[in-house]
């Protein structure tokens, strides 16, 4: 059976859930092989095997982490050339899409981004125009390279051998030509990762200020959710930029999205439109966000949200 390469998303070996989703999808197409670039293989391999990785290719030379994007593409390109996999699956993050882009050019392959499903013959389902149209696409030349959105499939465990195979790559001069000279990590807090969370609770201009986000965070914590924000809220400095949801922020597709004090501008909707269930609290009955709501309350969020939080806490007992 041909291999299906899955690029592992991880921080120092702490593997992100999306990787297990990709391994689950990969099993439909062939034999999953995880590709781990960077340090932390020892911590990662157990989980990767648990979700079906027969092989774990490890490229952990320090040099690979010193440059953005290109080294990962070159590791994958080498494996594509050597192993002729049936497909390559990468998470649809900003960096993942760029890795896929470079790999496509390097390996002479087509690329499909933002798939929400992948079938056994590597046909990708995409949801385009803000979810209004569903298309099925195929790569017609080279190795299918597909980036898949988080939360597209429920990760299912299926034991794999998880055999470690070390890979070394001679980076091209071009890959070394841009260098990361500093990494700045901004506070994240103890909540689930925004892009991966099953529930996202967001606040917008209606929250009124940084203190107002206390109400949003309390609701999020009662649900075990991540916190998101509209651009109006992040631009005003009420909430950090990396929590912005939308066209120029993160794209999220959680099981539940709760929008509070957000009007529903097209740029915001672009980042949350494919959420499975949407709940809206807004005092303006004309706010376009209500068009997406499965359940909406026209009212003041400072009344509705604390009551909701209290009710959830009570019911969860």
């Amino acid at each position: 059976m041909a291999e299906v390469l899955v690029l592992v998303e991880h921080v120092d070996g702490a593997v992100k859930k999306v990787t297990y989703e990709l391994l689950t999808l990969a099993r439909r197409i062939g034999e999953p092989a995880a590709v781990l670039v960077g340090a932390g293989a020892d911590a990662a391999i157990g989980g990767l095997a648990e979700y079906g990785a027969a092989t774990v290719y490890v490229a952990d030379a320090a040099e690979l982490s010193a440059h953005p994007v290109a080294p990962k593409a070159e590791v994958l390109a080498k494996l594509v050339a050597e192993k002729a996999p049936a497909a390559v699956l990468v998470a649809s993050t900003a960096e993942g899409k760029e890795v896929a882009a470079r790999l496509a050019v390097r390996s002479g392959s087509g690329v499909i981004t933002d798939a929400v499903d992948v079938s056994a013959d590597a046909t990708a389902t995409q949801s385009i125009f803000g979810g209004a149209t569903v298309v099925k696409s195929k790569v017609t030349t080279g190795t299918p390279i597909i980036t898949v959105r988080t939360n597209s499939v429920a990760p299912e465990a299926a034991a794999g051998a998880g055999a470690r195979v070390d890979v070394s790559v001679e980076l091209s001069a071009a890959a070394r030509s841009a260098t990361i000279v500093d990494r700045v990590v901004q506070a994240k807090g103890g909540r689930p990762d925004l892009a991966e969370a099953a529930i996202v609770v967001s606040g917008g201009r209606g929250v009124g200020g940084a203190e107002g986000f206390g109400v949003i965070e309390a609701l999020a914590d009662s649900l075990g959710a991540a916190v998101g924000a509209s651009r109006a809220a992040t631009d005003a400095g009420w909430y950090p930029h990396q929590f912005q949801v939308g066209q120029t922020g993160k794209t999220v597709a959680p099981q539940l999205y709760v929008a509070n004090g957000i009007s529903g501008a097209i740029q915001h909707r672009a980042g949350m439109q494919t959420s499975k269930t949407v709940v809206v609290v807004n005092k303006d009955p004309e706010a376009p966000i209500f068009e997406l709501a499965d359940f909406g309350v026209v009212g003041d969020l400072f009344q509705v949200v604390p009551q909701l939080t209290e009710e959830i806490t009570k019911r969860k007992g």
């Binding site: 496509a104 149209t133 298309v135 790569v139 017609t140 949407v278 209500f290 359940f295 309350v297 509705v304």
Partner: peptide, 26 residues
């Protein structure tokens, strides 16, 4: 190197329930 094979409009989402807060919205 990639091609769209088929496209379909997603069936419109069923209209949600919208209520006005009467003190018990939460």
């Amino acid at each position: 190197w990639s091609a769209v094979e088929e496209a379909a409009a997603r069936p419109p989402k069923a209209k949600g329930t919208i209520v006005t807060d009467d003190g018990a919205g939460g």
